[in-house]
Computed example of a mutant assay.
Amino acid sequence: MSESAPGKPDVERLYLEHHCWLQGWLRSRLNSADDAADLAQDTFLRVLRRRQQSGIGEPRAYLRTIARGLMIDLWRHRDIERAWLETLAQVPEQHAPSAETSLLIIETLVEIDRMLDGLRPPVRQAFLLAQLEGMSCPKIAARMGISLATVERHLAQALRHCYRLAFEEQS
């Protein structure tokens, strides 16, 4: 076993000692052996990427926390995909996008959802009213029952948040 990658032996031991348990835990919550296997692998990939240097005190709690987040991501992705497919079902077949375009749209929607998830609900609501419904700040203020200044602060906060996620975290 090579010692060249810091933390690698710990991850190997963690995998050997807890992979079967984690996969069983996921299978009991997902009711799918395939999804459980995929998320168990994704959990250990996250552990590898984090390169935790110190030993993990409670390995199952640590793995469960990562896996729970991945389950939530999976469910959200499927909710978005389901909503997209319901929308597509209402579009005449000749106007429907190709399968490749649909996949790109779903991935984009998932990324947008992930970006907006970091916003407080009133900030997200103001942002969506402005961006999706094209509402002006005064109309958003009236709809939400808040001041114009608050709407403007919410929109500025949402734009800063999206900018940070899109540009600053890439570097």
Rank of each mutant, 00 (worst) to 15 (best):
E3G: 15
G7R: 05
P9I: 03
L16W: 00
E17T: 05
E17M: 01
C20M: 13
L22E: 01
Q23D: 05
G24T: 09
L26A: 05
S28M: 03
R29T: 03
A36V: 07
A40Y: 07
T43V: 11
L45K: 11
L45E: 10
R49S: 15
R51V: 10
Q52L: 14
G57R: 08
E58F: 01
R60E: 01
A61Y: 02
R64S: 01
I66D: 01
R68Y: 04
D73P: 13
H77T: 11
D79F: 00
I80L: 03
E81C: 03
E81K: 07
E86S: 05
E86R: 14
T87Y: 01
A89R: 12
A89E: 04
Q94W: 10
Q94G: 13
H95Y: 09
P97A: 09
A99N: 09
T101W: 06
L103Y: 14
L103A: 08
I105G: 04
I105A: 08
I106S: 02
E107S: 13
E111T: 15
E111Y: 09
D113N: 07
D113K: 12
D113P: 11
R114L: 00
R120N: 07
P122W: 00
V123W: 07
R124M: 06
Q125P: 12
F127G: 00
A130V: 08
M135C: 04
M135I: 08
A141D: 03
A142I: 01
S147I: 13
S147D: 15
A149H: 08
V151S: 14
E152V: 15
R153T: 14
H154S: 13
Q157N: 11
A158S: 04
A158L: 05
R160T: 01
R164K: 03
F167T: 06
E168N: 02
